[in-house]
């Protein structure tokens, strides 16, 4: 993407995200009270995040590549299971990948 395109994406997506937030405060509450709407929205969020984990961990353009990112993600999962704070999880994953690469793998 060119810098101009990136600016367009940044501003358009920001406007969209703000409009979504404001819509919630303006519409009558009962419009969104449907249990199925709430559950599906939660599923979409989890689904998007799971797909982002997958693409970010295995993707290299249009190829699937197993490298230092995968063991780093496993370390992050262990840290999350032990209730480590967000910043600790992120730093541990980065350190794992950086360490493995310094040793010549991935």
């Amino acid at each position: 993407m060119s810098p101009t395109t990136v600016w367009f994406v940044v501003l358009a997506a920001s406007a969209l995200c703000f409009a979504l937030k404001l819509a919630g405060h303006l519409v009558p509450e009962h419009w969104l009270a449907d249990e199925r709407v709430a559950r599906t929205a939660a599923m979409v969020t989890a689904s998007l995040l799971a797909a982002l984990v997958t693409v970010q961990t295995l993707g290299a353009g249009q190829a699937i590549v197993v490298d230092a990112r995968l063991p780093a993600l496993a370390v992050a999962a262990v840290a999350l299971a032990l209730r480590a704070p967000f910043i600790v999880v992120v730093v541990l994953a980065a350190a794992t990948a950086a360490g493995l690469r310094a040793l010549g793998w991935g």
Partner: peptide, 28 residues
């Protein structure tokens, strides 16, 4: 990841949908 502008805006927007539900919850 080299995605298109449309995919970038759509993904960010879809992840923002839950904030609509939060707003409706917080209004009252």
């Amino acid at each position: 990841a080299g995605g298109t502008p449309g995919a970038a805006v759509a993904t960010a927007g879809l992840l923002g949908v839950r904030n609509t539900l939060y707003g409706a919850q917080l209004g009252p």
